[in-house]
Design a protein around this nucleic acid. Structure first.
Lengths: 364, 364
DNA sequence: CTGAAAGCGCTTACAG
DNA sequence: CTGAAAGCGCTTACAG
């Protein structure tokens, strides 16, 4: 704020050789800038440098603390060793997307292992759905390739990237053909949970899903329904949808109907789960004493706040978020190197034994 | 994996009428490329375009579906619009540094607001303390400036950056002169907690700090001691150090000594706090019934797992981590623009009323 | 009011 | 084996 009549009007780079360039190295080493480039990028096809020249250049680069400018490198159409990460809907939503953190951890781990840095593109944080979405997504080209994630993604900007052959992969299930993604095998895992219920002797079950058609929710429903059918559970009236606020009445009705187990899902909002557990607590029920309870997905809060009336963890399955992050990085690198064609990976979910499943105890 | 002998060895951009550039628009509108640039970026200082020219250019741009190349734009802007973020000790340690997440959130928010992207440098994730630390830190120059954080940082590489005039700021307290940082005002906040205890009538108090000399711990101790002195609390034997595992015996001794309140601190390991609360639980004590308890700093777990024997949140103060992240980004940008000299900011901590403070209840 | 030129920092043929 | 040149797509003084 202090506009102290500085002689040079805001010099972009304060003073000193804050950011040495190849030309600085060239001068110091007594060679041309092009030679510096050749030495620094390592062995280009056929080109052989005199060992002595090589050494001088490397030495000078080291002395000056040279680091290539990623943007210039990209403009000149080369790799810069950086992978993009673009999250839709407020990149780090303090509230909701804590559920994304494990993915970030996985991405970061694998990127580090592969010697890649990460560019976090922040475009998505502003007013969502703006036309600037397009501009924001475009910036992604500053990286060698990009990872996308988030439930609802703007399709158009992505399609353009795809057409241009820019390498990217989604973290999470996608429907679009020809687009790479790594997701979780919700279908199998959900079916397995249904089978577990049947094995315990349950017959009349309810699946309470969120009222939000994301691929993850669709997959889970399919898994539950298929699994229920396969295991001989009742399937009529099996699936119900909620926004999270209307669970008390349902719960009472279910009890009247003789429902002995309820399955629900965890999403980034956690609405269905919190609605259900709150209703269970208010009804004074305990799990699995009065009702068996299963959850499809990992609860957002890392050290899951113990749910009132529940002895321990909720039974069901966990989503391998960290491993999804890692796998996505590996796939992306293959795509960038051209050693793989666009493809999809579905990772298995880990069953969670938990403490909320037991034999059926019909309602009063 | 499928090496399907593709004719063109992975062409960067497939085919089609390649993206239109400004020169294409220029040709179509019958003006120079520079004029196109002027029109497109809106009003540059003093430059006034003929409305007719403006219209023609805009029209042509529209027709051709022009969108600026973000990479070229950044290169020409002589800034790459990227801020670095470098975390010491495993960038995203799954275990410990969950406490860093709020800082990340703040950094991301402000970066987004300022139209900057973030480069996450992953160098620190490997074997710590390696000589590669230097090399890793050097990479940071790829960004316009950099944010550093973590308790223990390698001094040499940083000094070098400083000498070269590379803009950077620490998140957290630093002792080095001439280096920018934004930290929390632990001294004042800690003193205030001591004063609160005195106001409640406590006289004999203990401060259990971690056995780790980081600036944050030093500041807290100073604040507690100063505050205790100022408020008339006993200061002899006030401070004790722990590694977290030896608290049971102390607790018994304190009770015998007539201690009525204990203050401890939260760090990235959380050792002192968890050691203390565990001891309190094992001793069958409740807070503030048997003992008042205060905490300097925010517990790591976001939805703090309710501590056994404690009614609600622990009294004390919280660290404004998110705001520190935001402030650090703003400072860094000022540094990069040269509109500010290196400087330090200390942010106020928020008092947490909590439920663990009450009037003194001398031990048995 | 607009054009011609230089430059951002790098890569990549192409000559010597 | 290395230098000189052109180019990636834009911005920014500087002349007219």
């Amino acid at each position: 704020m202090s506009e102290t009549a500085s002689p040079p009007p805001t010099p972009p780079r304060p003073n000193g050789r804050a950011k040495p360039r190849q030309s600085d190295i060239a001068r110091a080493a007594g060679v041309s800038q092009a030679t510096v480039s050749l030495v620094l990028r390592g062995a280009t096809t056929g080109v052989v440098l005199a060992p002595e020249t090589r050494r001088r250049v490397l030495r000078a680069a080291e002395d000056l603390g040279y680091v290539p400018d990623p943007v210039a490198t990209r403009l000149a159409a080369a790799r810069n060793g950086m992978l993009g990460l673009y999250t839709f809907s407020t990149t780090f939503p303090t509230d909701v997307a804590h559920s994304y953190y494990p993915v970030l951890v996985g991405v970061e781990e694998e990127a580090a292992a592969q010697g890649q840095d990460l560019i976090l593109f922040t475009g998505a944080s502003r007013a969502a759905g703006t036309t600037s979405d397009a501009a924001a997504v475009r910036r992604v080209r500053a990286a060698d390739g990009c990872l996308f994630f988030g439930r609802h993604v703007p399709e158009d900007p992505i399609r353009r990237l795809s057409e241009d052959g820019f390498p990217f992969v989604y973290i999470g299930r996608r429907e679009e053909p020809g687009i790479s993604h790594v997701g979780a095998d919700y279908v199998s895992a959900s079916a397995e949970v249904a089978a577990r219920l049947a094995a315990l002797g349950h017959h009349r079950v309810r699946y309470l899903r969120e009222n939000d058609d994301a691929p993850a929710s669709t997959d889970r429903e399919r898994g539950v329904v298929d699994g229920a059918r396969g295991a001989g559970l009742e399937t009529v009236g099996l699936v119900e949808r909620t926004d999270g606020g209307d669970v008390d009445a349902r719960l009472a009705r279910w009890r009247d109907e003789g429902v002995t187990a309820v399955v629900t899902e965890e999403t980034d909002t956690g609405a269905a789960l919190s609605g259900l557990t709150a209703a269970v607590a208010r009804a004074g029920l305990s799990c699995p004493g009065d009702l068996s309870l299963a959850l499809l997905g990992t609860p957002a809060a890392a050290p899951a706040a113990p749910v009132t009336g529940l002895a321990g963890a909720i039974s069901g399955f966990g989503v391998p978020m960290r491993e999804m992050g890692r796998a996505a990085v590996r796939l992306l690198l293959d795509l960038i190197e051209g050693s793989a064609a666009p493809q999809s990976h579905l990772l298995a979910c880990e069953p969670v034994a938990g403490a909320t499943l037991g034999p059926p105890h019909p309602g009063r």
